[in-house]
């Protein structure tokens, strides 16, 4: 269970929110001239990192406002919440707790098959 700090309402339970997937995905400006592959990339492909992830959330059972969140998907720890009109924080601001791309963090992983 995650507590999310809505920038307008404060801390609320995650079940009040809806995830909107990856943030900062920009609609291509020239859809007419895109190849099928590029258009497919825009429609269907989203980043899916284990670790630092920029994502959108909406407080659907509250103020119904959208905002952005930086979360570590390996631990579910929320690292930063910022409004949609604020600048995207740089990746270097956050610490990656993983030693390898599909490794397990020391704290926050539920994977006991791998954790010693």
């Amino acid at each position: 269970m995650i507590l999310i700090k809505c920038p307008y309402c404060g801390y609320r339970d995650q079940s009040e929110f809806t995830s909107g997937g990856e943030a900062h995905v920009i609609r291509p400006k020239n859809p007419q001239s895109l190849s099928d592959k590029d258009w497919g990339e825009y429609v269907f492909y989203r980043n899916n990192p284990k670790g630092i992830f920029y994502e959108r959330w909406v407080h659907s059972h509250g103020c119904k406002k959208w905002f952005n969140v930086v979360r570590n998907t390996a631990t579910d720890q929320i690292l930063k919440v910022y409004k949609v009109n604020e600048k995207r924080p740089d990746l270097s601001e956050f610490e990656n707790t993983l030693k390898s791309p599909s490794g397990e963090p020391l704290v926050g992983s539920g994977n006991f098959a791998v954790k010693k």
Binding site: M1, Q14, S15, E55, T73, A74, S109, G110
Partner: peptide
Amino acid sequence: DGYNSFTQRGGYD
């Protein structure tokens, strides 16, 4: 769960 995650537990709701 309604969001991306690699933690093998999931939310209570």
